[in-house]
Amino acid sequence: MDINAPEGFEPFARLPGFLITTGPLYVKYHDSQANLGLRVEEKHCNIANICHGGMLMTFADMQLGVGSQVAQKIHKFLPTVHMSCDFVAPAPLGSWLEGTTLVTKQTRKTMFATCLVTADGETCFSASGIMKIPGDNGQFSDIVFEPKG
């Protein structure tokens, strides 16, 4: 399938493990924000030919973590400790998913954020997440998703 990503989106530089099977994932960095993008392919869909809820949750989980990391300039992977979500509308096969993140609070050890996911510009999914901020010598301190340069 031709991805046909909107202007400003580039392939996400690092897709380890599970994310290889769910991609291809795209990202646009701007104004201390990271917006993830994904074209819904057949492999992302359920029997109704709309994006599977588990795929939307995976996409939102990435958006929450990467978006928070970039917005707060935290150079550490932020593992999710809690996520709640709402399925707002279907995301049909071929639609462009795009995520945005809003950090609502940061403490020394915890990040709280919300995200919206749109399908071709219409809200289809929302989520709230709580992510752990690892210590400087923590297990996740060397895994960073951030803009090049």
Rank of each mutant, 00 (worst) to 15 (best):
D2L: 09
I3P: 01
N4I: 06
N4V: 11
N4H: 01
A5G: 01
E7D: 07
G8E: 03
P11Y: 14
F12E: 00
F12G: 07
A13D: 11
A13P: 09
F18Y: 15
L19H: 14
I20Y: 06
T21H: 14
P24E: 03
Y26P: 04
K28W: 01
Y29D: 10
Y29T: 08
Q33T: 13
A34L: 12
A34D: 13
L36I: 11
L38Q: 06
R39G: 00
R39A: 02
R39I: 06
V40L: 02
N46Y: 10
I47L: 01
I47T: 10
C51N: 07
H52K: 10
G54N: 00
M55I: 11
L56S: 02
M57P: 00
T58E: 06
T58V: 07
F59A: 06
M62S: 06
L64D: 05
G65F: 07
V66L: 10
V70I: 13
K73M: 08
K73E: 13
T80A: 02
C85V: 11
C85W: 14
P90S: 04
L93M: 05
L97W: 04
T101S: 09
T104I: 12
T104R: 10
T104V: 11
K105F: 07
K105H: 13
K105R: 15
K105S: 12
Q106L: 02
R108N: 04
R108E: 14
T110W: 00
F112Q: 07
A113S: 13
A113P: 08
C115E: 12
L116Y: 05
T118N: 03
T118F: 00
T123Q: 14
F125E: 09
A127C: 10
G129R: 01
K132T: 12
K132F: 13
K132S: 11
I133T: 15
G138H: 13
G138F: 11
F140R: 12
F140M: 10
S141N: 14
